[in-house]
């Protein structure tokens, strides 16, 4: 089973993105545990006392993107009380940056595996870069405005 070889260690773009993908994956594990714990800390556990389960969908949304306006009708209580502060905004921007960069780089890797014409590669690389900027700006705007 041979797949793509790992890039040589050094200050090349490929190696930087290779190591970034792995480290951001680990970091997103950590951030999601913090978000998960935060959801319980801020009242999600109340659901357990009512002979009912936690709304897992809402919990997952809080876990990955703890934003008061994230969903139209979330069932986790204390929505506006605990979440609208700088700590969770920094958390959101971090996870937005890591997730978007990880995802867009993955898109680039998959595309470049199947395309070998260099001008098309360059064009698509530029388009993915623009998409990355676009999604990041929209995401940060949503965080700051909510």
């Amino acid at each position: 089973m041979s797949s793509r070889p790992a890039p040589q260690i050094g200050f090349s773009f490929e190696y930087m993105m290779w190591i970034f993908t792995r480290l951001s994956g680990l970091a997103m594990f950590l951030l999601s545990f913090i978000g998960f714990a935060g959801a319980f800390w801020l009242g999600a556990r109340m659901y357990l006392t009512n002979n009912s389960f936690v709304d897992i969908g809402a919990l997952a949304r809080w876990t990955f993107f703890p934003n008061p306006n994230h969903v139209v009708n979330t069932n986790i209580p204390d929505v506006a009380v605990g979440w609208a502060n700088a700590w969770w905004q920094i958390m959101q921007i971090t996870i937005l940056f890591l997730g978007t960069t990880h995802g867009m780089n993955g898109l680039r890797v998959v595309i470049e595996d199947y395309i070998d014409r260099s001008w098309l590669r360059t064009l698509l690389r530029g388009l993915i870069f623009l998409l990355w900027i676009f999604v990041m700006l929209f995401g940060i705007y949503v965080i700051q405005a909510s």
Partner: peptide, 27 residues
């Protein structure tokens, strides 16, 4: 390997559209 690629691309599509849709909904 194949599922990792498919799930990754699906999540890029989903999260990207979700962010843009949230922006449009909010504004």
């Amino acid at each position: 390997w194949a599922l990792h690629r498919i799930s990754g691309l699906a999540m890029v599509l989903f999260v990207g559209m979700h962010i843009v849709a949230s922006f449009v909904m909010q504004q």
